[in-house]
Design a binder for these strands. Structure first.
Length: 211
DNA sequence: GAGGAGATCGTCT
DNA sequence: GACGATCTCCTCT
């Protein structure tokens, strides 16, 4: 699976995110997550997501109501919600549904597409390694914490950032890639509401975090 | 290759 | 003071 070209990228609009997180999570598969920085462009194709439904979803951060930490999830759609977990890692989400209603989608894994060397370096992967090997490419962004480290995503830098704004250095775009088969499973690493099928991934992708 | 444990800290109770 | 939407390293098989 390779990208088409980096031309003809259409930035996803607010309306795309102003929907049920389950629909957004599925629709985001195959889209490109892009980070613009002074050294160039980093991009990855989203291959795995999870939907978090808001106050009715016991596993969601918004389950207990609005707090300073999770306020973005209750805000307008299309904004980055970044949180710190396990003392080591950040996780990146995008808010869904209209202002006042909580909901979001977690980015769990992506396939590196552009700026691969930069991302590998950010992850502490030796440059001398052959970055064309799938087994090494997988280590760059096959997991929510890994993805954030590769993209340089932190709460201080990116929380509450607008994905939709033209000037944003963090964007979600459509390059015309079409996903064929989507697999749906329970979400990973949660205890509450563990039975719900809210994890989505591209069936044929090698860059999914876990099978 | 599978399984277990440690790292490490912000957030909420 | 407890815990968590994770990752890596180490040990054992």
């Amino acid at each position: 699976m390779r990208t088409n070209s980096m031309d003809n990228l259409v930035v996803l609009k607010t309306a795309f995110f102003n929907r049920d997180p389950r629909r957004v999570a599925r629709s985001l598969l195959g889209k490109l997550l892009i980070r613009k920085n002074p050294h160039g462009i980093l991009a990855g194709r989203i291959v795995e997501t999870e939907a978090y439904l808001g106050e009715g979803d016991a596993a969601a951060h918004s389950a207990a109501g609005r707090t300073p930490r999770n306020a973005v999830l209750f805000g307008p759609p299309g904004y980055a919600y970044v949180y710190f977990i396990y003392g080591n890692h950040y996780c990146l989400n995008v808010s869904c549904l209209p202002d006042g209603i909580a909901g979001g989608v977690l980015f769990r894994a992506m396939e590196p597409v552009a700026g691969v060397e930069q991302m590998a370096e950010a992850r502490g992967i030796e440059k001398k390694s052959d970055l064309n090997e799938v087994s090494l490419l997988r280590k760059i962004s096959s997991g929510p914490g890994r993805l954030c480290e590769a993209m340089g995503v932190t709460r201080a830098r990116d929380n509450a950032k607008n994905f939709v704004s033209p000037g944003s250095d963090l964007q979600l775009t459509d390059d015309g890639y079409r996903v064929r088969n989507v697999t749906v499973t329970p979400r990973i690493g949660i205890v509450k509401s563990a039975g719900q099928l809210l994890r989505y991934f591209i069936a044929e992708s090698s860059f999914v975090s876990r099978r």
